[in-house]
Amino acid sequence: MLPILEVKDLCMDFGGLRALDHINLEVFSDQIVALIGPNGAGKTTFFNCVTGIYEPTHGDILVLSRDDGQRKRINGLKPNKITELGLARTFQNIRLFPNMTVLENVMIGRHTRTRSWIFGALFRDKKTVQEEQETVEVSYNILKKLQLEKYVNEIASNLPYGAQRRLEIARALAAEPSLLLLDEPAAGMNPKETKQLEELILQIKEQERVSILLIEHDMKLVMNISEMVYVVEYGRLLAKGSPREIKEDERVIKAYLGEDHDA
C-alpha cells in the first residue's frame, strides 16, 4: 500500500543555512506518526515545507490525493492546493481568525469542500442554499465532537486557551483531510488537558479515519499515541522506530540529555 505522505531526501536551505538535511518520512493511512526533536531541530520547517509555505530546496514530497487516489508531487505547490489534496494543519502559535465566530472559523475550514462563488453568492440558487446549509450543519457537528458547541457564536479570540487549540483542530478537520498535521497541539496545556487531548486525538483518528502527523514535546503524549516516531536533530533524521525502540535508542537519549549523561 502506498503511504499517504512520502517525503524523500528533503532538504531546505535558508541562505547558507541547511535547516533540513535529507529527511525521509512516511505516513500510512490510519497511522499516528510523531516528529520529535530538540528546539530548533527543524520540525516546524518540515511542516512548512510539507504544507507549501516554503518551497524545499531539494527532494520530493509525494501526497496521495484525497479525491482521486493519485500520487502527486507537491513541491512548490501553493498551500491552498495542498490543502485541496487532503492535508490540513494547525499552527504552533495559534492562528485562528480572531474576530470571527467559532462557527465561522470552522465554516472557513469547509472552503475546500464547497464550491459556490460570486454567482452563487448573488443569486442564491438551490445548490448554493443547500451547500450553505450543509456547511453550517457539518461545522456544528464537528464543534460538537470537540466539545466546543457551547461556544458556537462566541468570538474566537474570547475562548480559553485550551478551547482555542481544539478549535484549530476542528477547523482543520472541517476540510475532511486524509492527513492531519498538528504542530505542538499540547503546547501550553497542563497535564490534565494534555490527557484529554490524547483521548481526543485517538478519538478523531478512529471516527474520522484520518492519519495524523504531529510535532510534540510532551514525550508522554507522543509515546502513548504514536505508532511511529521520527527524531530529528540539527535538521537531520537521527532515528526512527516504534515508541519503545526510540525510548531505548542511545543516540536519542544523548540528543535529549546531552553527551555527558553517563559520565
Binding site: 501553493k78 498551500p79 499552527f91 472552503h111
Partner: peptide
C-alpha cells in the same frame, strides 16, 4: 497564512 492553509486561494 491561516487562510491559505485552509485551502483559500
Amino acid at each position: 497564512i491561516a487562510c491559505e492553509a485552509m485551502g483559500i486561494d
